[in-house]
Design a binder for these strands. Sequence first.
DNA 1: GTCTATATTGAGATAGAC
DNA 2: GTCTATCTCAATATAGAC
Lengths: 205, 205
Amino acid sequence: MTTTEPAAAARRGRPGYDRDSMLEVVVEAFNERGYDATSLGVLAERLGLSKSAIYHHFASKEQMLEVALAQALDALEAVFDAPEATTGPVVSRIRHVLRGAVLVLCERKPYVTLLLRLRGNTPIEQEAMRRRRAIDAKMRALFEASRDEGTLRADMDPRIAERLTFGMVNSIVEWYRPDGPISPEELAESVLQLVRTGLREPSSL
Amino acid sequence: MTTTEPAAAARRGRPGYDRDSMLEVVVEAFNERGYDATSLGVLAERLGLSKSAIYHHFASKEQMLEVALAQALDALEAVFDAPEATTGPVVSRIRHVLRGAVLVLCERKPYVTLLLRLRGNTPIEQEAMRRRRAIDAKMRALFEASRDEGTLRADMDPRIAERLTFGMVNSIVEWYRPDGPISPEELAESVLQLVRTGLREPSSL
DNA sequence: GTCTATATTGAGATAGAC
DNA sequence: GTCTATCTCAATATAGAC
C-alpha cells in the first residue's frame, strides 16, 4: 500500500484533501441537509476524517460557506458584467443574461444552490445576499429598458416579469441533474422559448 | 370544543396564546431564519414567553413544523383535487391549478414557504415532501395530456415545461408581500399570461 | 398557561501529539 | 494532514411550583 499520493483532488479514499476537493464534499452535504442542519460531525463522517482535521483547511464552518458562495457570485457577476450584457439591443442583452444565468446555475449548481437558500443570519450571509440583490437589480433594469422601448408586453409590470422570470431560472437548481439527459444549453434554450413566446402551441392559440 | 375564549389569535401582548396564534409567530420566525437556525430561545423571545411555556402548546419543535406543513399541503391538495382540476378541457384544468396554486401560495404564504424549503431531514419532513411530489406528479400529468392533445408547444418537453412553470410559481414566496400593491388575483393573471404567450410585446415579434 | 430551574445532549472549536 | 482528547456553550426538552 502506497503511503504518498501526489494529487489530492480526485481521491475518494481516506486522506489527502485539499481545500477545493474538501469543499466539494462539504457543499454537497450542505445542500442535502441544509447548512445549519449539517454538523461538523456529519461532515467529518462524509469526508472520512475527524472533525478537527477539517480545521486544517477551513478556519470555521462559516468560512466554508463564504468560499462556496464566492464561487457562485463571481460567476454570476461575470455574466452580468460581460459586454454582451451591457451593450447592444436590450432584447439581446436579456437573452444573454438569461442564458448565462442558466449555464452558471447548471455548471456550478451546488454553489448557486447554497446562495439561493441563504437567510441572512450572519454578516457573511448578508453580504452575499447584497451581491445577489445587485444582480437582481441589473436584471430588473434590463426588463424596464425593454418595457421602455416597447419590446416587453405592455400589459405586464416589468418588475413582476423580472421576478417571475428569474424565479423560474433559479428554481432549476431544485431538479437539474448534471448527469441527466438534458444539457445546460438545451435547458437555456427552453427557458428562452418559454419566456419569449410561452408554452402554447401557436396553432392552438 | 373550542370557544370558551372567542379568539386569542389577534392578541399581541404577553399572555394568552392558543395553538394557532402561537404558530403564526413561530412560522414567521422559521421563515426568517430557517427552521434549523431558529432556536426555542429565539421563539420564546419573539413570543414574549419562556421556552418551557411553548411546550404547553406543542410537544416538540418538530410538531410545530408538522402542523404548519399540513396547512400548506391541505390547501394545495384541495386545488388539485377540485372538480375544475380533474374534468373539462386540459387547458382549463391547467389554468385552474396554476391560478389556484398562486392563490394558495399568496394566502398561506408562510406555511407554503416552509414546505418549499424542506430538505427531508426527518420522517415528518420526508412525508411532507412525498405529498408535495404527488402534487407535482398531477401537474406533470396535466402538461403531458396537453402535449398529447397538441395544445402544448411541440418543441418543448412537457416535463421541463412543468418544472419551469411550477418553479416560477413557487418562487413567488420569495418576494410576494400580502400588504403590497399587487393582489393575488393580479399575480395569478400575470403568471397565466407569461405561461401562455410569453413576455414579448406581440407587435415586436 | 406560564414560570424558574435543570437535565442532557450535541454543537463548533482548540491543543498538542504524530 | 490527520489524529485523540477536551473545552465551552447553546440546543431541546423535562420537572414541578404558581
